[in-house]
């Protein structure tokens, strides 16, 4: 499996996950390289943020671990600062896909920072930046209806079918007091490759 970082160094994905989580915990990383705004709503997900539904009838309600069905489908969410209640919905690029699997169904790489089989990825397709996802329940894969790219969330959002050529950026998670929270910044550049 290829590492999917933007850096030219030969660091492993696990190294980066640890480094990102550590640096973010120390306040050294503002939640992702692309987050340049100081508006807390526009910041990418921050370490310690929880999640709220980003659309649908439960929009704005906190996502509890039990809200995710084992084996999918996915839930779309925004990160939310738990103390202030600020939701990071100031940019559509902040939207996140949450999926729950049995840990044994995840690849080794996917299990890193995936507490109890919960995984999170950027909801922005790496091809054309669409963010409305179909779920193939039989194969348990994410399909972007804009151009038919498919990603395998069990294998760290690897591209199964193009035109996308890049995985969905991974958002490290941790379990804290029975809740899902952000453990580090997005791994990989958030956004489509066409812009």
């Amino acid at each position: 499996m290829q590492s999917r970082t933007a850096c030219a160094c030969k660091c492993s994905r696990r190294d980066l996950l640890k480094a990102a989580a550590g640096a973010a915990a120390l306040g050294l990383v503002p939640g992702g390289a692309a987050a340049q705004s100081t508006d807390p709503r526009s910041l990418r997900p921050q370490v310690g943020d929880r999640f709220v539904f980003s659309s649908g009838p439960r929009k704005g309600i906190v996502v509890a671990p039990g809200d995710l069905a084992l084996g999918g489908p996915h839930v779309t969410a925004f990160a939310q600062h738990p103390a202030s209640g600020v939701t990071r919905d100031g940019s559509r690029l902040n939207e996140v896909l949450l999926v729950r699997f049995d840990s044994k169904d995840l690849t080794e790489a996917a299990r890193a920072n995936a507490p109890h089989g919960y995984v999170a990825f950027s909801a922005i397709c790496t091809h054309g930046a669409c963010s409305d996802w179909g779920w193939d329940g039989e194969r348990k894969v994410l399909r972007c209806p804009c151009h038919e790219s498919e990603f395998d969330p069990k294998d760290d959002a690897r591209v199964l079918v193009g035109p996308a050529t890049r995985r969905l950026p991974r958002l490290p998670l941790k379990a804290e007091d029975g809740a899902l929270v952000v453990a580090g910044a997005f791994i990989g550049r958030v956004g489509g490759d066409l812009t």
């Binding site: 930046a129 489509g192 066409l194 812009t195």
Partner: peptide, 11 residues
């Protein structure tokens, strides 16, 4: 220079 968050549904 297109915005980074523009959706290219029809690129």
């Amino acid at each position: 220079e297109l915005p980074e968050d523009v959706v290219q549904s029809h690129p």
